[in-house]
């Protein structure tokens, strides 16, 4: 009898372990995506809420502090005067201000070289400060960019490497994201082609980066890829660059995939969406 009991208990344990493993696979493949979608939507909503109320946590590079009074957000008319001094990204108004095109032609301006040097603004660790759009990944693809690359930060969105340049700033704005699990934000990174747009907004400006070359595969210790001028990127002079990092292979961690882009255009949000997002 005891033999039978031992065998039965052992069998039941095996079945239990198998069930737990199946549940874990469900968790990793499905549930992390649900959680990440929830969390990232929450972060984006928080950002947009914050932006629509005119409280902005960081100045856009080159933005003048006196852009517009914080109460002008609901009345685009009032911000006409500051807009006349074109070039300064005005304060965060609504995303598609109807009066935006009145004073400014929607020109693609190259990044201004007179902007102050990239000193990372006070991004707060674990807090979102921008939203990224990549048309190549689909129209619905939008992810918040949070400060820091900690495990818990990357569960909620993309993570900005602390110590790298600010968004749109001089240097290298480096961002890490999950390739798989937690919503698979960077699953399609290998599909990026030279010329593809990577668009970000911090509530005051749109930043359009253009991918420079196809994804570069490297090892995890290759920290030079997020240097201000990454040696292997083909960039030679200091500029305003963007680096995306994710894991390679998709479910592994032996390598990393790197995509470099350079800033092509900056425009205030009052000018409407950049051309890359309008197609």
């Amino acid at each position: 009898m005891p033999v039978r009991l031992v065998i039965r208990t052992f069998s039941e344990l095996c079945i239990t372990v198998g069930a737990v493993i199946v549940l874990f696979v469900v968790y990793v493949l499905y549930w992390t995506g649900v959680k990440a979608a929830d969390a990232s939507d929450g972060e984006i909503h928080r950002l947009q809420d914050q932006w629509s109320r005119g409280r902005i946590e960081l100045p856009a590079p080159g933005a003048t502090a006196s852009a517009a009074p914080p109460d002008a957000t609901q009345e685009p008319q009032k911000s006409q005067a500051p807009q006349a001094t074109r070039g300064a990204p005005t304060a965060p108004t609504t995303r598609s201000a109807p009066a935006a095109s009145a004073g400014t032609e929607p020109a693609r301006r190259p990044a201004r070289s007179t902007a102050p040097a990239a000193r990372p603004p006070a991004y707060r660790d674990g807090k979102p400060f921008a939203v990224m759009y990549v048309p190549r990944f689909g129209r619905a693809w939008d992810w918040p960019v949070l400060e820091g690359t900690g495990v818990n930060t990357l569960k909620k969105g993309l993570g900005h490497y602390p110590g790298t340049a600010a968004l749109g700033g001089r240097g290298n704005f480096a961002v890490a994201g999950h390739r798989r699990t937690y919503g698979d934000p960077f699953k399609d990174v290998p599909l990026l082609r030279p010329g593809d747009a990577v668009v970000l907004t911090d509530g005051a400006s749109w930043f359009t980066y253009r991918v420079d070359r196809r994804a570069y595969r490297t090892v995890p210790t290759d920290i030079g890829v997020i240097d201000p001028v990454p040696e292997k990127s083909g960039f030679r002079v200091p500029g305003r660059y963007l680096t995306l990092t994710t894991c390679e292979p998709e479910w592994g961690s032996s390598h990393r995939l790197i995509v470099w882009a350079r800033l092509e255009a900056t425009r205030p949000v009052t000018d409407g969406k950049p051309p890359a997002l309008r197609s």
Binding site: V28, D125, G148, T149, G150, V151, L154, G159, Y161, P162, A176, G177, H178, R179, R180, T181, Y182, F186, T218, P220, T221, D222, I223, V225, I226, T245, T246, C247, W251, G252, S253, R256, I258
Partner: peptide
């Protein structure tokens, strides 16, 4: 290993 997406030679958690 699905969370190792940063270049720092360590796991993502040790990155910052």
């Amino acid at each position: 290993p699905f969370g190792d997406v940063t270049v720092d030679g360590a796991s993502a958690g040790a990155g910052a």
